[in-house]
């Protein structure tokens, strides 16, 4: 595959992974504890009120599948970007502290602000978005305080420190919360695609689209950044600018994904690595492939979560964590 021109490989990559993702998006809503038929769900002869298949398809399953597509694509692509930025194949959206910020925001809203509403947005996603963006700003300011270019080691360590600090804050808030609130907080922290409606997806979509528009300008620079900042600069990359764009865009994608579905673990590590096995390491192929396959992968994980101990539907975060933990260890061992 690597001998073909890049243009051909890009078309094959997008075509191949696009087809897989589309098929998964269409088929996944049909599978579940109650079997339904696609033709019945889309049938115009049966009134919607009487069409149980249509109700299950459009209300119970389609939002969940679309959430999976959006969150999976965002986290997988963000992971691929961060791995190049940090020059570390084990970096992930969770590394930055953005997920932790989102978690603190969500848990504050669950514990103290359940009645707040701002327009159509529910308080929990809104608060987690604010938390995520605040955490991103703190890390960004720390990393850009000292030098013109971002210090990736400061970025990484600030993320780790922020993660630890915010975990303590979360435990503190949990301690003050009552049983119901704690239960909801724990459920949120697992990561779940069951958003129950289309409105939250529509609210998260613009952020993800902005992030993806920035991602589209980055792959050439990311290839070179993975050789180191000096090598990248010598080949014409504006390193400071590319690093800032990479950090901000991946943080935006992560913020949107986590505020929608909670911190679904490991997608940002598993998917880019699987994709590299197929398309190689060139980010011009890895980024689109990771976004498309991330969508399919998370939907499939959710399918497993919904059906494995049916009729109980597990949150998808349990499935991704169960797959992701061993996968991470395998990567660690495989890297010599």
């Amino acid at each position: 595959m690597s001998t073909r021109p890049l243009r051909t490989r890009l078309v094959l990559t997008i075509g191949g992974f696009g087809a897989v993702t589309l098929a998964v998006c269409l088929l996944a809503p049909l599978v579940g504890s109650t079997p339904i038929s696609l033709s019945r769900a889309f049938s115009r002869t049966i009134p919607y009120a009487d069409n149980v298949d249509a109700q299950i398809f459009f209300v119970a399953r389609l939002p969940r599948v679309l959430t999976g597509a959006l969150v999976g694509a965002a986290l997988a692509a963000a992971g691929a970007v961060l791995q190049a930025l940090f020059r570390n194949p084990l970096a992930a959206p969770e590394t930055l502290g953005v997920s932790a910020g989102a978690a603190l925001g969500a848990i504050l809203a669950i514990t103290f602000g359940a009645d707040m509403r701002l327009g159509p947005l529910a308080p929990v996603p809104l608060a987690s978005l604010v938390g995520a963006l605040s955490a991103m700003s703190v890390v960004y300011l720390l990393a850009s305080a000292t030098r013109r270019a971002l210090s990736t080691s400061v970025l990484l360590l600030a993320g780790v420190a922020l993660n630890a600090f915010i975990s303590a804050m979360i435990l503190f808030v949990q301690y003050l919360a009552d049983f119901t609130q704690t239960y909801r907080a724990v459920r949120w922290l697992i990561g779940d695609l069951d958003v129950g409606a289309f409105a939250p997806i529509a609210a998260a979509l613009p952020l993800v689209l902005v992030a993806f528009a920035i991602f589209a300008t980055l792959p050439g620079a990311l290839n070179l950044l993975s050789l180191g900042p000096d090598a990248a600069a010598a080949r014409g990359v504006d390193v400071a600018r590319a690093q800032r764009l990479a950090f901000v865009s991946s943080s935006l994608a992560t913020s949107a994904a986590v505020s929608l579905a909670g911190p679904v673990a490991f997608i940002g590590i598993i998917v880019p690595h699987l994709v590299r096995l197929v398309v190689g390491v060139d980010h011009r192929l890895v980024l689109p492939a990771a976004a498309l396959f991330g969508a399919a992968f998370l939907i499939i994980c959710d399918l497993i979560a919904r059906t494995i101990i049916s009729p109980v539907e597990l949150p998808v975060g349990i499935v991704t964590a169960v797959i992701g933990g061993p996968f991470f260890l395998w990567l660690l061992v495989r890297r010599r």
Binding site: S2, Q83, A84, R87, N88, P89, G220, A221, N223, L224, S226, L227, G228, D230, A231, A234, R235, G236, V237, R276, G280, V281, D282
Partner: peptide, 24 residues
């Protein structure tokens, strides 16, 4: 163009990939 003492790519690029990056 600059040739440093050593270059350590993070990912497993092929030789052709590395040379094509010069076209950036």
């Amino acid at each position: 163009a600059v040739v440093p003492q050593e270059t350590h790519p993070t990912f497993d690029f092929t030789v052709l990939d590395m040379v094509l990056m010069g076209r950036h």
